[in-house]
Nucleic acid binder design. Structure first.
Lengths: 344, 344
DNA sequence: GGGCCAAATGATAGCGCAATCATTTAGTCT
DNA sequence: AGACTAAATGATTGCGCTATCATTTGGCCC
């Protein structure tokens, strides 16, 4: 493509802008990065040159020279799981406002994949990282620690965080759910689990602990699968649990709301009345849970707030301000709704 | 922090690796970027040095020197709307496999925000862009065109794409839905719309066109709101539509499944029987629609495939191969389920 | 065995910007 | 008015890497 004008298609650089504005390159740089260090007159002049040339700074050059990327690396285990939507929204919200870009990767619930992704992320020289949970490979943890940047591990409370930690105890939440069901007079409490990632495992361990504490044998009350969770799968697991438990169970704790909704819809098709014949409890409290009929008892988790808090913490760490608490318990709340009855 | 070893905390560079491996810097660079151009011996030697030093390449330096970012910029209107999850999954999948990073921004359904975000994105020198729809500001379009990189506008079919385009006709889909309802004997067809972004507008125009073609007055059959869509809102709009239409409508076309589910759940609470008293149709065909009772008639859209196709197209364009079709109609399918009855 | 070619490796330069330090200008005080 | 300070602006240099071209090495042919 030829151009008769002098507007070649070569990239516009700082120097070009400086030439047009009749100033030095560094002044242009200042107009962009520290506008208050430049006089009004020059600032206007330079801004005009920037606009007329359509100048866009080259972040690579900038980052290379300043050793600052303005990037926060984020690793989540799944893009399909809507649970992470809200977390991401919080992260993007806070990061964006503070002038940080977010580089997001999906680890597909695999520590090995995660290690590879973290490598990729680190080569972008992120100024901080937000990652999910604590089951990184040893190599991955070393990489992260060696990076010497603020790190938040989010979603669950960890015994030995790499750096900072925002989350809640999934074990305790599982324990609490079962306790509530026991209080309401249930005794034969089933458990449905899918994907079985570390957090689901914790919920299940909480379930088992509470059952053990109540002296109830749970051996025939559990169905799990490593498959990714879905409403469809919830229906299947429900059928399978009803079959294997010979129909004696009086309630089910589902490891998440997808499974619980699947179970609920399937129970409707099987003409099993919820909660009269069976109480149902989910986890995460997604929007549908509140509106489905009967409304679904679930564990509400402040996901958006978790994203916000995680991001605020890394940004605070970057600003050099002291961090009050390296570990933040963001909490949760068991919300009893109509899918669980009082069986006493 | 002092270190007695010679492993200072200074960043490890290519030169350091080269020194340890006893080769020149450029050879290390080749081991990383064009391994087959280096002899086995040296490659192993260098790899050992890389591993022992924990070297991670600095992408900024690399990108600056090579003028290649290996980044694809992606702009979507909302992180909370699960519809984009599937699209993103497709994008990340294909991009990741081809060695591209994805830089994602959320435009909050605002062209102005989008323009700002596109600016940010462009300063990262993405090699290609995937953006949503066609309602960019004029300035934004100019920026994009000036960037001279492959661009896909996805989600809807556009009359004048900036470059490439992957999507389907929301107008036609709206028209088709109403046609099916008419065929099934419905005449008083309502419309519920939220957010009213360009694609929802198109669906509504399709609805109106089909109603006009059938000679049916739709004036009192429409409720819309600029608020973001949700199940809760679906319930509210449903009540409002039932009130304003004086209960004469025999079916409702909801602009998406969230609204439809909200309407369905609310109708259950209001003891309105679906589909006996009222047919209900959604849009997008999210997973819940298939499993809710009664199952929800909806318009199935290949979202994952849309993400995949969009990304494949930009990558193909980047590889210099010719593009068969600059515009791809990804299609859709009206899936009739139990929430719509045959009223004839 | 001399000459030739391809493969392997290296030396040099520069990508576009900001850190650093140097210089100029304007402002203030006595 | 002179001396000093702060604010504004500029010159130089290098961030870590890769493109480009130059050089070396080894293999092979007649």
């Amino acid at each position: 493509m030829r151009s008769t004008k002098n507007t070649t298609h070569k990239k516009v650089t700082l120097v070009d802008v400086a030439a047009v504005a009749g100033v030095s390159a560094i002044t242009v740089s200042r107009v962009i990065n520290q506008p208050d260090k430049v006089s009004d007159l020059l600032r206007r002049q330079v801004q005009a040159a920037i606009d007329s040339l359509g100048y866009i700074p080259n972040q690579f050059a900038s980052s290379l020279a300043s050793a600052k990327s303005r990037v926060i690396g984020v690793a989540i285990p799944s893009l399909s799981n809507i649970v992470f939507n809200d977390v991401l929204r919080g992260i993007y919200e806070v990061a964006g406002k503070a002038g940080y870009k977010v580089l997001l990767v999906d680890t597909h619930y695999s520590p090995l994949e995660e290690e590879k992704m973290v490598r990729t992320l680190l080569s972008q020289a992120p100024e901080a990282m937000i990652i999910t949970g604590g089951d990184q490979t040893r190599a991955c943890q070393q990489l992260l620690q060696k990076a010497g940047i603020p790190i938040v591990q989010m979603m669950e409370l960890l015994d030995q965080p790499l750096d900072m930690n925002v989350g809640f105890s999934h074990w305790q939440a599982g324990y609490d759910v079962v306790s509530k069901l026991l209080e309401a007079g249930h005794t034969r409490i089933g458990f449905m689990g899918a994907r079985m990632d570390p957090r689901v495992q914790q919920r299940m361990l909480g379930y088992k602990a509470a059952m053990d504490a109540a002296g109830i044998d749970w051996k025939n009350f559990i169905v799990t699968t490593p498959e990714p969770s879905s409403i469809a799968l919830g229906g299947e697991l429900f059928r399978s649990l009803m079959a294997s438990s010979q129909g004696v169970i009086d309630s089910i704790f589902c490891c998440n709301d997808d499974l619980a909704l699947g179970a609920l819809f399937e129970s409707q098709r099987m003409n099993i009345r919820i909660p009269e014949q069976l109480s149902l409890c989910g986890f995460n409290d997604i929007e549908a849970s509140q509106f489905v009929n009967p409304s679904l008892t679930s564990v509400h988790v402040p996901r958006y707030e978790m994203g916000v808090k995680s991001t605020e913490m890394v940004i605070r760490a970057l600003s050099g301000k002291p961090i009050e608490e390296k570990q933040v318990n963001i909490g949760y709340e068991v919300r009893l709704r109509k899918s669980t009855r009082n069986a006493k």
